[in-house]
């Protein structure tokens, strides 16, 4: 029975992925991609990886989809006019070489996967073995904060850099204007933007708090809070902040800064950069970092979707 479900899921996933690549219209492709994200989240659940599933659903399907929808809506007007006329389309030689390249890459991937020894090499036993020393109950959080914390730190810094990139395309004249979110002034939206956020914010905090020992973490938690903020902004229930606001900038920066501070403190607490003392104190430090990161991710994700101040060059 579960085999039938898994097979259906796999077929759907591959079919939707192929459709997403083949479809001509950008908006349809984005819709397909978001559908793929939801199906992927289900697939991760079937692989017993709820943390990855949550992040995929929140970021892969939700947030990236939202960003791409905005881009697609902006491009939509010019897209039809710019369809290449017949003469400038790639000739048969180009088409054949592209197909050959794709088949070649896919073939190499299949070859590489089939060559993996059985059982596949895994660091999972070692990761679980030392879980107790990290003071954490969730192996994924332990990998993120205890084993590979440099990767996690850089990952958060990249997200902040992304926001700096988006803010930097705002024209000078509009730099001090509040970020512009399209307010949908309709009854149902006003209702949703006022009813859902209280529950959503509690859920986001719960996800972030649970991350140390159970399913969750700063990324899905922060993204859920960001979604609630966007909902309230779209409903016109809260005022949009300006990119020059000190509070907003502090919220964006606090996570990586706390992470960095704890990392530097590692020189004294343990023996090196980003090291944590073993046992229960390590958990306390991880929670401090997670709280900071949740605030930062919530603020950064909201601002990423909201776009450049004053609506940017798009007017």
């Amino acid at each position: 029975m579960t085999l039938a479900f898994d097979l259906c899921l796999m077929l759907l996933l591959v079919a939707l992925a192929v459709w997403t690549v083949m479809v001509r219209d950008t908006m349809s492709a984005v819709t397909g991609l978001m559908g793929c994200g939801v199906l992927l989240a289900l697939a991760w659940m079937r692989l017993a990886a709820p943390d990855v599933a949550l992040t995929e659903a929140a970021i892969g399907a939700g947030l990236s989809g939202l960003l791409l929808i905005r881009a697609a809506a902006y491009e939509h007007a010019t897209e039809v006019a710019e369809q290449a006329p017949r003469g400038t389309r790639p000739g048969p030689l180009a088409t054949v070489s592209v197909v050959a390249l794709c088949v070649g890459v896919a073939g190499l991937l299949v070859f590489a996967v089939l060559r993996l020894p059985i059982p596949a090499p895994s660091l999972a036993p070692q990761a679980v073995e030392h879980l107790e020393a990290t003071g954490l109950g969730n192996a994924v959080t332990a990998v993120l904060f205890s084993y590979r914390s440099l990767d996690t730190l850089l990952e958060k810094a990249v997200v902040v850099l992304g926001l700096v990139g988006i803010w930097s395309i705002a024209p000078d004249a509009r730099w001090k204007a509040p970020v512009r979110v399209a307010v949908v002034d309709e009854g149902p939206m006003s209702l949703l933007g006022r009813v859902l956020p209280p529950f959503g914010i509690v859920l986001g905090i719960l996800l972030a708090w649970n991350g140390a020992d159970d399913v969750g973490g700063a990324f899905p938690g922060g993204t859920v809070i960001a979604a609630m903020w966007l909902l309230a902004l779209t409903a016109g229930a809260v005022r949009a902040p300006s990119a020059t606001s000190g509070g907003l900038r502090a919220a964006v920066a606090v996570g990586p800064l706390v992470f960095l501070a704890v990392g530097v403190a590692g020189f004294w607490l343990a023996d090196t950069f980003l090291a944590l003392p073993p046992g229960a104190t390590a958990k306390a430090w991880v929670i401090v970092v997670e709280v900071g990161l949740t605030v930062s991710i919530a603020a950064t994700m909201t601002m990423l979707v909201a776009g450049p101040p004053g609506g940017g060059a798009t007017g």
Binding site: V184, G187, P188, L192
Partner: peptide, 13 residues
């Protein structure tokens, strides 16, 4: 129910 009601209202509008 809540999200589908709001979404369909908005799409309908």
């Amino acid at each position: 129910i809540l999200s589908s009601a709001v979404a369909s209202q908005l799409v309908g509008g």
